[in-house]
Structure formats: structure tokens, C-alpha cells
């Protein structure tokens, strides 16, 4: 049975491990980008979609060759440790604050995300956190910090699950939650949650690609990792990212370039 016969030496050179956040997979973006990269480069990509916190940890330990994540502050910590290197910006979109259409905390019309969270906390309206060290969770924590609120109490609940599952739970419970726009758009027609606050500069969601340092982890496929990172910034990939989702959702899910 060929199943058990894959030779390790071959696997070492011809495949690379990409650790990434769930939103790039759940939105379907990687389903179009990875095959193109595989065709162009000859590498086989093992995409492990586990969330930003775990992706960075896997890269840090040398268990992945390249990571694609969205938690700028957390990324800087790993850069400082020297295990992850060559961080480059790939694309961005934004987070949106969503909640039940009735908007019990009355945040609609507000401009500041931190201000809106403060109001939710003051009113004791139900807020559902990812609670999973993902990029979205990281962003949410920084917003609570900016609001000067210690988010605890019966109104603050944690799902510990991915963005899709969290949106579904928030919808069922009539809770507010922070979501990346790509996943929200993908779920929009199945949930009873509306966008109540968007456009705050603090809600910018930036995706970076980071390579794993071969100096710290001699066994990583550094060439493969670099090839993937380079590909993500190539004109062909950037063009695909820019137009991805327009046909299905009427608007792009990700943007490239500055902004």
C-alpha cells in the first residue's frame, strides 16, 4: 500500500508546512492561492489552519516553515525572539463589530470601537469572545485595553472556537462579537447578526507572512518557506487576493497595498 511508503527524504525537500489562521482557509482564499503556488514552484504545501497564536508557536518551534498570520503585536514578540524572520505585509481587511439587530447596548452610530466595547460592558450586554489566542482575539484584547475595561463578568463569554463557530454561537445567543469581515461576509446569510460598527482605524486587520529562521531551526525547509512568502507578494498572487470574493459577495474580502 503506497500509503506507508512515502520516503522521508523526499518529503523533506518537496513539501513545506504553512501554519496559518483559520480565516484564510475558511474564506476559501488559500484554496485558490495554494494550488497556484504549487504549480509554479513544484512544492507541495501542507496547510495547517490553526489560528494565529498556534501558528506563531509552531513557527517558533520550527514545526512549520512559514506562517501567514494577523496579530501584529504578537508577531513582533516572536521577531524579537529571533525564531521568526523577514516579516512582510501581504494584505489587509478590517474587523467589524457585529451584534443582534436590536442592538441592546445601543452602539450603532458610534465611531470608536473601544468606546462601543465600553458601552457594551457598562450595559452588561452579552459579548462573545473567541478566547483562543487567535489574531481576532488578540485584536479584541487590545481594544478592551484601549477602552480601559477588564472584560470579566457574566456578560463576557468565551467560545474557544474559530470565527465561523463563534459567529454562529453569537447569533444564537444574541451576543455582540468582533469578527473579521471575510468570515462575517461568508456567514452573513445564515446568522442574525448585523454590522454595528466599522471603519475605525483601530479595526484594521493586517496579514503578515513570516519565515522561520534556518539559523535557529536547521531542519526547516527555509527555501520552501521563502518561496511561499515571495509568492504571496508576487504580482500574480496579489492580483488574485485583490479580486477574491468579488464574484460571490459583491465586494472583495481582502485588500492589498497600503491603507
Amino acid at each position: 500500500m503506497g500509503l506507508l511508503a512515502a520516503t522521508p527524504a523526499q518529503a523533506q525537500r518537496s513539501s513545506l508546512i504553512l501554519a496559518t489562521t483559520t480565516s484564510t482557509q475558511d474564506s476559501g482564499l488559500l484554496d485558490v492561492l495554494v494550488p497556484l503556488f504549487e504549480k509554479k514552484s513544484g512544492y507541495t504545501v501542507k496547510t495547517i489552519a490553526v489560528g494565529t497564536g498556534q501558528s506563531l508557536a509552531l513557527g517558533h518551534r520550527g514545526e512549520a516553515d512559514v506562517v501567514l498570520v494577523h496579530a501584529p503585536e504578537l508577531e513582533l514578540q516572536y521577531l524579537a525572539k529571533g525564531t521568526l524572520v523577514n516579516r512582510r505585509r501581504v494584505m489587509h481587511n478590517d474587523f467589524v463589530l457585529v451584534g443582534p439587530p436590536a442592538d441592546p447596548a445601543g452602539i450603532k452610530g458610534m465611531k470608536s470601537a473601544a468606546g462601543a466595547l465600553k458601552k457594551i460592558a457598562e450595559r452588561g450586554a452579552l459579548f462573545l469572545s473567541r478566547g483562543d489566542q487567535s489574531g481576532t482575539h488578540d485584536k479584541e484584547k487590545s481594544l478592551w485595553k484601549a477602552a480601559g475595561i477588564a472584560a470579566t463578568g457574566p456578560w463576557y463569554i468565551e467560545s474557544g472556537q474559530g470565527m465561523g463557530a463563534t459567529l454562529t454561537i453569537a447569533s444564537e445567543k444574541g451576543a455582540y462579537t468582533l469578527a473579521d469581515r471575510a468570515t462575517y461576509l461568508a456567514f452573513k446569510r445564515r446568522i442574525q447578526l448585523v454590522v454595528l460598527l466599522e471603519g475605525d482605524a483601530a479595526l484594521l486587520n493586517i496579514y503578515h507572512v513570516l519565515e522561520v529562521s534556518p539559523a535557529r531551526h536547521p531542519r526547516v525547509n527555509a527555501a520552501g518557506g521563502k518561496a511561499f512568502a515571495d509568492f504571496m507578494l508576487s504580482a500574480a498572487a496579489q492580483e488574485m487576493i485583490k479580486t477574491f470574493g468579488v464574484g460571490k459577495y459583491g465586494e472583495p474580502l481582502f485588500f492589498v497595498g497600503g491603507g
Binding site: 483559520t22 482557509q25 475558511d26 476559501g28 484554496d31 495554494v34 507541495t44 501542507k46 496547510t47 495547517i48 489552519a49 474559530g162 465561523g164 463557530a165 454562529t168 461568508a186 456567514f187 445564515r190
Partner: peptide, 24 residues
Amino acid sequence: GGNIRGQTRVLTTATVLETGKGNF
């Protein structure tokens, strides 16, 4: 397995993924 498309995706992990994508 890592639920890798075309390599290690099996029925149960694919079900989790499709649920996560909202493709109920």
C-alpha cells in the same frame, strides 16, 4: 493529519472544516 486538502483530509475533518466555513 492537519486536514490538508488533497493529502490528509478525511470525512470527519472535512465535516469540521465545512461547518467552520458555514457550508452546513
